[in-house]
Write a protein that binds this DNA or RNA. Structure first.
Lengths: 288, 288
DNA sequence: AATCGATAAGAAAATAATTTACATTCTGAA
DNA sequence: TTCAGAATGTAAATTATTTTCTTATCGATT
């Protein structure tokens, strides 16, 4: 069941004028919307109650109260994120803001992610003899290491690189047995796009997790689109991080499931090593 | 406004017998309670509707619908995702599972994070002349780099290390002007705990983001507790990642706000370099 | 420009949900 | 046992919501 605010944003253009007015108010003042009766909300939007009911139906709810419940379930979390410039100063406000943005970002990804692409990338990973994860810049290099971190636990051969030159050189040594996964938030990493093309030129499979339609997306055979609105406030932490982590999570999780039997043994071994070495409590997280 | 489920548990003993029966049902099946009408809920608890109204009032709500809204807002609603073993096989199920766990993990963090500690760590970071972020193992080393990635953008001096030996050697060179931030999911990283103690021994400030009460937490002066239930299924991706990322996000965000004026300039510079070099569209994410 | 069809939106009626007011039934202490 | 007070239910009143039906609006077509 999708987040109602996300649905609201997505369907905004398909709403009638009155409905958009309701949407506006809901969006602007969720605290009001969540507590108001249908009559109050209708009055404030200057429409009739039946229009509000129709508005709820259009959003996939059976009734106004179902709408309110769904709104309450997401409003709490999402409130702050969508409003561009909020005054934030106390620690509690920072916490709420960070959480709100993270949640909202994940919701946006959830709404837009294409299962077919996740499936295809996972399948291709399973076929590869060796996998290279490429990403540069503070964030995307992190993602490359995350890919490595996740896949090696499944007993796959995988290397990560954040170095453009290494990426390019590596790409030119590949063959049909190899696969390159490119990571880029912006999708404008020219060097990465080049490396992907070179790799493909030598027969390697290429995939990316990046902005849809971007340079990097176009340079790869498979591309999982992660499209997120990024604010303009320079102080704003890039909440895209959560979405990329989740995207990688999805791919890795599916790979794990698809090769379940052969994946358990490497994990067991890693775990045993860590436990033996560190202490006896084997509930600890794999590899910290 | 307190969480309604928490209120429910706290006031449990002061409720009458019928009210306790209602509480029971709400607690057992929140999904039902949140969607049911007062009549349905009353019927299921085998009480009359007015008793339900009285129950709501006792919990500090003015009406049944206010109660429902508060219930829907309760973070506990999200915890259904934490239920251990769901059979997952299709890509869509994987996506839903990954998203659900990520959201739940974030909810748990949101519930438990201590704003005072976030504030203290941020304040201490602002005082330090140099910051070292230490973490090892696939996940925690990622977090160390995340700390570095976030703080250098604010114009702070920061280095990350995932190497135990380097951490220990570095720790022994520090002074009052330095600060070490230790990252560990499990909190059982003995080498990290040692490095933190050594650093403190030489007068450096020490903080950690790790499991509460753990070895690493005890070894540091300030510790932001991130306590999450970790499943036992070895195939399960560690959703703790999201919570740690968020925890770091909170600290970095607060640091950014506290030194707002001086933080904008470094960010502006980083951005200008990237834009000039890469392309003209300056909406791209800082550092990809 | 006139007309048709489709969609949107409101009015009023019908229905359903919730609350209030009041009556009854318990419970436990004197 | 009896009585005060709390707890609960019944039924009425109120309020909220939805349905049905009508009117208005807009755009396309002739």
């Amino acid at each position: 069941m999708a987040d109602i605010i996300a649905t609201l944003q997505k369907q905004h253009d398909e709403l009638s004028r009155s409905e958009q007015r309701i949407a506006e108010i809901v969006f602007e003042d969720k605290a009001f919307a969540v507590n108001a009766s249908i009559i109050e909300l209708a009055a404030r939007a200057d429409v009739s109650p039946p229009t509000v009911t129709r508005f709820c139906r259009r959003l996939g709810c059976n009734s106004f109260s179902e709408f309110k419940v769904r709104l309450a379930q997401s409003a709490f979390i999402g409130t702050r994120y969508l409003e561009p410039e909020i005054k934030v100063s106390s620690a509690q406000e920072v916490i709420d803001t960070v959480m709100g943005r993270a949640q909202s970002t994940l919701n946006v990804l959830h709404e837009n992610v294409d299962p077919a692409v996740v499936e295809k990338i996972a399948e291709r990973i399973l076929k590869a003899k060796m996998i290279y994860a490429f990403g540069s810049g503070g964030n995307s290099s992190l993602f490359a290491h995350e890919v490595q971190n996740r896949l090696f636990r499944l007993g796959l051969r995988v290397a990560a690189s954040e170095d453009h030159s290494m990426q390019l050189m590596t790409a030119s040594t590949l063959s049909e047995e190899d696969m390159v996964i490119g990571l880029s938030i912006s999708g404008r990493n020219r060097e990465l796009a080049r490396a992907l093309e070179v790799a493909a030129g030598y027969g390697a499979a290429t995939a990316s997790v990046t902005k849809g339609e971007s340079l990097v997306a176009q340079a790869s055979q498979l591309s999982l689109a992660v499209d997120l609105p990024e604010g303009t406030d320079v102080l704003r932490p890039s909440s895209a991080r959560y979405a990329f982590l989740a995207a990688i999570d999805m791919i890795a999780f599916l790979v794990a499931i698809r090769r379940k039997d052969s994946a358990i043994e490497p994990l067991r071994r890693i775990k045993r090593q860590l436990v033996t070495y560190r202490d006896e409590d084997d509930t600890q997280v794999l590899g910290d």
